[in-house]
Write a protein that binds this DNA or RNA. Structure first.
Lengths: 252, 252
DNA sequence: CCTAGTCCACTGGTCGGACCAGTCACAGCT
DNA sequence: AGCTGTGACTGGTCCGACCAGTGGACTAGG
């Protein structure tokens, strides 16, 4: 066999992909900005020198990626959308929902993210924000008497406030998405648990401890308590061999 | 103004969207599994009772989302792909690259993720894995004499091993993506810095400290050092008001 | 002058038919 | 049996057509 250059496998590039690339490149370069409009489909046909089917396939891909939005009859053409977290959320939900990720990975991720957000919060929070946090605690207490769904919603509000105070929307988005997925995986088990009310009360107690640490400004303790609580709350649903990785996140 | 029920804005549902939904639902229900094949486009035309254009637009969306892959001439029809992290990565890159996220948020995210991964690693690593980690350290040392790109690549290998040992692919993916984005934002500034070599040496020294803590099994110290290092390395590129949120991540 | 209503050019959504290059299974040949 | 050529398919692209909607221009009424 002759020694030659290393060739790479080649896959055909479809026309609509080139269009998608061009649009995305223009967007990355700043030649196209959110709020601006793309030319109409028939105009794009002329500019790209392809058929309308091809242009439309490209637009469908861009639309599915949350880059543009087409509305029938709009004489201004497809609209370039502001970058939203919705697209990331969509993909994350898809990824996380399937067996590609284990429950342990999801919960571990939450322990990290939530702990970090709480740590930052206890450092940066103003007294006003502290009041906001304590307010959600009161709401959680009230929600216990309603049902588990209400409690879960109040819990979400708590973590929302935390994430906002920590001033990192990336953490916020990731946290929210993963939290939703985890809950969708095991919420029925929790809700139907005979001691559902006891669990909620315990969770509330844990949250109160976290808030106490936040008030004291002890970020380290707050984060540790938060992680410990999440472990106590969810670890029962994680099979033992993987539970070890979660314990490694608590320590000292 | 009459008090009435809260109406929601309504947007037309396009035919291709219904097809996408049906396929994704079938996939979520398990009626469709990775590795299986979809009927050919012309067969789908008959089953969905729409035109081929519509079927193709649906397939393009599914393909862009990493759900299926079409190859011309394949008599078996479009292939259902295994769920990959590629899709998530794509979206994350898009989200992170644009101004929606600040550099501080990205770096803060990395400090958290990387610190957590290192903490878990120092707890769970086998002696064999420790050797792997130390190996990447040697590679980093050698890469310093080449150029910044080589060093950066060796650094990536280091974090890769860490993420693998921590057994959480979600952390791994997020870490990798954000790292890439951060580097693409500031790598030129670092590479062209007059003291580029000094920076690399310092970074290597920091990594060595982290590895030392990992060897000692002190996860807390390892994570703290890692976060501190990343702060030292990147904080100069973050404007002051936001730098505070990063400092809040180090503490004690 | 300004407003309210009408109208129409144009938009995107969908359709059906056509052609091409590529792929793969199979029948036929060696 | 092993190889080869063929042909029935595949997806990629193009074209032309029709429809229901949109929104701006234009007009009639104040």
């Amino acid at each position: 066999m002759t020694k030659g250059p290393q060739f790479q496998p080649v896959q055909p590039v479809r026309a609509y992909q080139r269009i998608v690339e061009q649009v995305e490149d223009a967007l990355a370069r700043g030649d196209l900005a959110p709020g601006q409009r793309l030319p109409s489909e028939r105009e794009l046909v002329a500019q790209f020198a392809v058929s309308r089917s091809t242009v439309r396939e490209a637009l469908r891909v861009l639309e599915s990626n949350g880059v543009v939005r087409s509305r029938p009859g709009d004489p201004n053409g497809p609209e370039i959308l502001p970058f939203s977290q919705a697209a990331l959320r969509k993909q994350m939900v898809r990824l996380a929902r399937v067996d590609e990720l284990t429950l342990a990975e999801l919960i571990g991720f939450r322990m990290i993210m939530d702990g970090a957000a709480i740590q930052v919060t206890s450092r940066l929070r103003t007294s006003e924000q502290l009041a906001d946090i304590e307010e959600t605690l009161v709401a959680m207490r009230a929600a216990i008497d309603v049902d588990f769904a209400a409690f879960s919603e109040a819990d979400l509000a708590f973590h929302d406030v935390i994430a906002q105070v920590s001033r990192n929307s990336l953490i916020q988005t990731c946290n929210e998405v993963v939290r939703g997925v985890v809950l969708s995986l095991i919420s029925d088990k929790i809700a139907h648990a005979p001691n559902s009310r006891a669990l909620m009360l315990e969770s509330l107690q844990h949250h109160a401890e976290v808030v106490e640490a936040i008030r004291a400004g002890d970020g380290h303790a707050a984060a540790r308590i938060a992680r410990q609580n999440m472990y106590d709350y969810y670890a029962g649903y994680v099979p033992e061999p993987e539970r070890e990785t979660l314990r490694a996140l608590i320590e000292d």
